[in-house]
Amino acid sequence: MGIQILLFGSLVDVLGDKHIQLAQVKDTDTLRLALTSTYPSIRDLKFVISVDKKITVENTPIDTTSEIALLPPFSGG
């Protein structure tokens, strides 16, 4: 079982899909490391991680049912 991750903005452009799958990780710090090692192209991008529709501001546990989304800042107007 892995985790399904919902992508927004430039992350969809760079990774080519609205969703990606990753092996299960235990928390958001580990997720960030797993993301940048699996997808080096997003290393320079800024994004916040949402777990179960809450933006995380510190390391947050992830379980098998967690809903994960990555949201980059937008500047356009």
């Binding site: 800024k46 980059p72 800042p73 937008f74 500047s75 356009g76």
Partner: peptide, 11 residues
């Protein structure tokens, strides 16, 4: 932390 302009391009 603010992204750089290149990290998040505008319209």
């Amino acid at each position: 932390v603010s992204p750089t302009a290149a990290q998040s391009p505008n319209c």
